[in-house]
Amino acid sequence: MSGIDVGNGVVGAILGVVFATLFQQWTQDVWFRIRRRSAGVVRSLTFRAQDGPACSTFSLGPLHTSALIVEGDGDRAIAAESIHVQVLDGEVALPDDMADWHAEIEAEEARAREEGDRAPVWNGPRYAVESLEVSRTALDEQSEVHLRLRPTDYYTFLAAQQLDRRLPDGSTPRTRYLDPEQPLAAPAFLQCSFAVNVAVVTADHLLVVSRRSNRVRMAPGVWNSSVNEGLSRHIDSSGRNAPDLHAVARRGMREEMALEPNEYTLSLLAFVLDVHKRHWSAHFYARLTDMTGDRLRDRMGRGVADRWEHDSIEYVPFRSADVSRYLLRPDRIHRWAPLAPALFHLALVHVHGRASVERAEAQAVRRL
């Protein structure tokens, strides 16, 4: 090799080092920007291809529900004084082409009473949801919820639950009266259900999970919140007063778990809508102050007013990882009442914080 070749090699090596030093970072930055923009384009194309309503219902990996969280994120409670409930005059009326369904149910239950082949369903007074509107206070942006109700009855509720039954013109109540792009817009006669659901946690950090009895008319045999109680015009409205949602939750705690108000703290976390069945719910979290899981089991064993509504109770450690795994168990994932998983998620967030809960949920999903 000649001296010229050696010199050229040395000069080439030096220039290579210089160019690598000067342009390596720039080249990497350019390549990173190209990759990021390409990925962004792919994501945007994918998003447009899957575009849908702005509101999405609660899901956790393969667990999909029809629960739409309308207000509340679990992080901070909604104050009782921020809830304004108004009962409007005039009972809810079914449209003419659904009125016969109410008469069918009434006749069916009358036959059940006469023949005695099963326990009849009584036409109890209920409330229908005319509207639920949310605003914010001017100074601290706290929630302000305005709930407007109308009187209705249980047979109207049962008739309106036949959302996919054919009407004379071939349509159904779902296709005629509901717009999937506007999940909060619905006539009051299709929203004859408002309940409170409570996630109860014992003093030794156990979440109470109940299974609905096979004897109940709606959603028998599914796993549900600790306490579920529907608004009753007869019980929850004294005189002409509108119902108090916290009082309804306390009634449910007493009737389903034999617990008195001095034995727990109660926090309202959210308002949630089951968009498939049009059931509204106020989601609560209750923490027992001194009562452990064993003591609660003993208390309930001595008798509760509404034992017939549940046929099983389970206790789950109230840790994000344990509850997430429990929600995703193969024997549970398709047996949840639609509003229960969102309730338990919000309760976890309220106690443990959103970041911690979402990490645990993501890990539980990855391990499936």
Rank of each mutant, 00 (worst) to 15 (best):
S2L: 00
G16S: 12
F19V: 12
T21K: 09
F23C: 09
Q24I: 11
Q25W: 03
W26C: 01
Q28F: 13
Q28E: 14
R37P: 00
S38C: 09
R43S: 12
S44N: 15
S44E: 15
Q50V: 12
F58C: 04
L60D: 04
G61H: 06
H64I: 03
T65P: 05
A67W: 08
A67K: 11
L68H: 05
D73C: 05
R76Y: 11
R76V: 09
S82M: 01
S82A: 13
Q86R: 15
Q86E: 04
P95C: 01
M98D: 01
D100T: 02
W101D: 07
E104T: 07
E106H: 09
R111F: 01
E115S: 15
E115N: 14
D117Y: 13
T137V: 00
Q142I: 09
S143C: 11
V145C: 07
V145L: 15
V145R: 02
L149F: 08
D153E: 11
L163F: 02
D164A: 12
D164R: 14
R166T: 05
D169L: 10
G170T: 04
Y177E: 11
D179Y: 14
P183M: 00
L184K: 05
P187Q: 07
L190G: 03
L190K: 04
C192M: 07
S193M: 02
F194H: 06
F194A: 06
A195W: 05
V196P: 02
V198R: 08
V198I: 06
A199Y: 01
V200W: 08
D204G: 02
R211W: 02
R212Y: 02
R215I: 00
P220M: 12
V222N: 08
N224S: 14
S225R: 04
S225A: 15
S226Y: 03
N241Q: 15
R254Q: 08
A258R: 10
E260M: 12
Y264D: 02
S267V: 04
V272K: 06
H279S: 10
W280K: 05
W280Y: 04
A282N: 08
H283P: 02
F284L: 14
A286Q: 11
T289R: 13
T292R: 12
D294L: 02
L296G: 00
G301Q: 04
V304H: 13
D306W: 14
R307F: 07
S312R: 01
F318E: 03
S324E: 03
L327Q: 05
R329F: 05
D331S: 06
R332Y: 11
R332T: 00
P338A: 11
A342I: 12
L343Y: 06
H345K: 13
V351Q: 11
G353Q: 00
R354I: 03
R354Q: 15
A355I: 01
A360M: 09
E361Y: 06
L368V: 01
